Each structure stands twice: as C-alpha cells, then as structure tokens.
Simulated assay, not measured.
Amino acid sequence: MHDLTSAPATDPTSIYRYRDCLYGADMVTAALSVDFFTWLSANPSSLAGICEHFGFTERPADTMMTLFAANDWVRNVGGVFHTTEVAREFMCAGPVWDVRPYFASLHDRPIARDFLEVLRTDKPAGWSGDKAAFDWHKAMEQEDFARKFTAAMDCRGVLLSQALAKKLDLTGRSCVLDIGAGSGVYACAITAQHQHMRGVAFDQAPVDRIAGKLIEERGCADRVSVATGNMFEGMPAGCDVHLFSNVLHDWGVPEVKKLLAVSHAALHVGGLLIIHDAFINADKTGPLHTAEYSCLLMHATQGKCYSTSEYAEMLDEAGFTPGDYHDTIIARGFMTAIRR
C-alpha cells in the first residue's frame, strides 16, 4: 500500500515528456506537408485567415499555432501570425537551409496524416491512431478499455496527486468531489494529505466500479466514497470543493462551459473549484512541453490544453472568481476559483 503523501527522490520529467510530447513531431510533419510556413511567410494571417485558406477548423488550428509559437517559429502580433527568422530560414521554400525535403519522407506516417484530417474536420482520430477504435469518450464505456485507461491514468496520478495535494490550501473545507475521478487517486491523496477532509470519487459506469476497488485496495474507503453519474447532467451535493483533474482538457469549449455551469449549480456560494491540468500560458506562447502534449489531446479527444486566460474567461462567465495559477510537477499545475 503506497503512502500517498510521499514523493519520488528524483525528477521524472524527461521520462513523462516522451509520452506527453509523442505527437508533436507528427503535427510539424503535417504542417510541412502542406507547405504551411512558406504560405504564412508570404501571407501573415489571423487564425481565421489560416483556417479559411487551408480549410482548417479552429480548435486544432489553435493547437497547431500554439505549438509553433512555443517553438518560436511564429509570433502573434495583434492577432496576426508572422513567421520568425528561424522559420523563414529553415521551413520555407527558397533558402539553402530548407528542411522540408528532410521531413518529406515522413509525410505518410499515419499520425501525421491523421492530423491533417483532424485539422480539417475537428473530429478526433481513433485512440492511438486506431481507425477501428471507438471514439475515446465512447470507448470509456467499454469495460476492457476503461480498465486499461484508468490503470494508465492511475499510474500517473500517484505522482501528480500528491504534488497537487501538498500545494492546496483547504483550510476550513470539508469534502472534495473528484469529478471524472477515474481511479479516485486524487481524492485519496487529498484526504491523505489533509486529514480533516473526506472525498467523493464521481464517475460513470464502469469506471465507478474500478474506482471503488482501487480505493479499497489503497485503504482509503473509510474517507473516500464513490458516486455514479453523468457529470454533464448533475453533480452530487454536499461537497464544498470541486476538483476537475485532467478532465476539462478532453472536451471542447461548449462542453467545458457546460461542466463549469453544472459545478456552479452544485456548489454553494464560497465553494472552491480546482482545475488541475497542463496549462498553456496566458499569451499562448508555451510552455513547449504543454504545447506538444496538447497535440496528443487534440488528436485523440475533443479538447486540447487550455490557456490560463481561456480558463479565467470561462470561469468568470460561469459565475466563479478565478484565482492564480500554480505549478506542481512535470509541466502540470492548478488554478482555483471561488463560486460567487
């Protein structure tokens, strides 16, 4: 039984980055396959203009441009994207240093081809590029996939949850609702670190049954219970803290706004909302690790990594007063907000 208040002795960021950033290279390859930088160099453009010219849609195109800005290949000046000197020297037709032929042999990589389709349709590709697979959200309703994916996220969650729990100020709070909880490891870690707290792991079937078993195996069942339901339809009452940990990044803006509205309806005035995730900075120029990770999310889900400014705007609109952003570990962090 692992102590959920413990921390590793070494830094695993470089290891996690291989997984998080796996699809970043394919996004670059996809863009080079349509000679994106040559066109943009001659035609500085807004995001809307880029979408119009290439037939791209907004969510994936925004993810792409955030990746390029994080690499300093483009700069956003007053809403218009311009190529930088390094992009003009190495990624455009003409200069002797042009790398486009070097990438050309990779244009037919399945994930690179997927990115062009996602950019044009805004529809996620199959999980891990499997065309025959369910949409990720539907796949989570299947017992076998749900069990494997929950195990994968629990493995990561053991590290991330204790780092989050140690940085939270939960003075005067009593119960955390872990929304879209997966294994429930975040509720377990928070109640282990803040022993005056109890927790509720809230998820749909069959994930709820998986969570219940793991919570019991961790010896946390006396402090963390399980609730079953659809988070878009309503949330259990009686908790004064709501946690969205690595949940909102799976959804598009309309769904994120819906989830924040449902949370607002379930919390009392003064209730605390915590968003724990990988965040893009306010001006959408990085960090690079997160911009690369966002490509994976854009490919496989309906979402992406949102910026702190995007979250602040959506929180305010939903009736919350946004707080500051705080780093935790391996390019993750959290924002808090108070229910008005």
Rank of each mutant, 00 (worst) to 15 (best):
E85G: 12
I50T: 10
D98M: 10
M65S: 05
F81G: 03
V207N: 00
G78D: 07
R88C: 10
P287M: 09
H299F: 02
W73H: 15
A261W: 10
E255G: 10
V158N: 01
L260P: 08
E89Q: 11
M140S: 00
A25D: 03
L260Q: 04
V74F: 03
D283A: 13
L315K: 02
H53A: 12
I111S: 01
A165N: 00
H194A: 04
L177I: 10
W136K: 01
F36G: 01
Q142K: 13
T29F: 07
L67N: 03
T290D: 08
D122S: 10
D327R: 14
D203V: 08
E52W: 08
M64N: 11
D240G: 00
K148A: 11
L296I: 04
L40W: 01
E255N: 09
A9F: 04
A152E: 12
A181N: 03
L67I: 05
I274P: 00
A318D: 14
I15A: 09
E89H: 13
E317Y: 07
V176C: 02
K138L: 14
A165E: 01
D62M: 12
S174N: 03
L259R: 00
P110L: 05
L106D: 15
F54E: 01
R209I: 13
N43K: 09
C155K: 06
V262G: 01
A211P: 03
H299L: 08
H53V: 11
Y16H: 05
G199E: 00
T38W: 07
V207P: 01
D3E: 07
D35S: 12
H196W: 07
V99F: 12
A132R: 08
D316V: 08
S161L: 08
A61Q: 01
L47M: 15
V118L: 09
C51M: 11
V224K: 02
F36I: 00
G219V: 04
E143R: 12
L273E: 03
K304V: 06
G126W: 06
T57G: 11
L259S: 06
M140C: 10
G219I: 12
K166Q: 15
D324G: 14
D169R: 08
M140E: 05
M235K: 02
W39R: 03
D72A: 07
L119A: 02
D203P: 06
M314V: 08
Q204W: 12
H53D: 10
D324F: 11
D108E: 13
T29L: 04
G286D: 03
A9R: 12
T5R: 06
H82P: 03
A278R: 05
M64Q: 11
E317Q: 14
T83R: 03
A139N: 04
